[in-house]
Amino acid sequence: MNDPYVVLGASPSDSDEEIKKKYRDLVKKYHPDNYNNNPLADLAQEKMKEINEAYDAIQKMRERGSSDNSGYSGSSSYKSRGSAEFAGVRSAINSGDLAYAERILESSANRNAEWNFLMGSLCYRKGWLDEAQRYFRRAVNMEPSNMEYRQAYARMQNADSTYRPAGYQHHGIDLCDICTMMICADACCRC
């Protein structure tokens, strides 16, 4: 394994607090949320694992119980929540077999909300973001109560901007704030 200090971009002379801060920054950077349905999600996950292991190793080296922070764990592949008809399409998109998914979707006569959602996911994986947004919007319009579709659509509207390194922030309103506001507004609207 690589030197855990190098992995975290820290040095052995750093204090526990500094190490923790660097660890947190890296977790934010490679968080699965930043790589949701992204073709590179597996690499980000590996990176995440490496960072967690490095952090644990440093904690152990410094002979402190790692009870307070056992590292972040998360899985990025989304669970299949849809109908049986499209289960194969979902797993094909998850595994990156886009040609197969596209073939099945194109030949399906049942163009319901889920079909639009999956077309959106497929376009997203290809990098066709404009098309993806249109399909997601259609899915939300057809089935406004479905959280999965709404989340996907909301992610398009904030352009997946969850992470920015320190010093590279935009001026003006933070997109996270907008997102939080939207979630709050959403919570208020539902009766």
């Binding site: 950077k29 490679y30 930043n34 790589y35 992204n38 590179l40 690499l43 980000a44 990176k47 990098g127 973001l129 404009d130 947004q133 398009m156 509207q157 904030n158 352009a159 997946d160 901007s161 992470y163």
Partner: peptide, 17 residues
């Protein structure tokens, strides 16, 4: 602007790897 920022964000997310 949003769709451009989206591509930009995905490029940046790839860059960080």
């Amino acid at each position: 602007e949003i769709t451009l920022a989206h591509s930009q964000n995905l490029a940046a997310a790839a860059f960080e790897l």
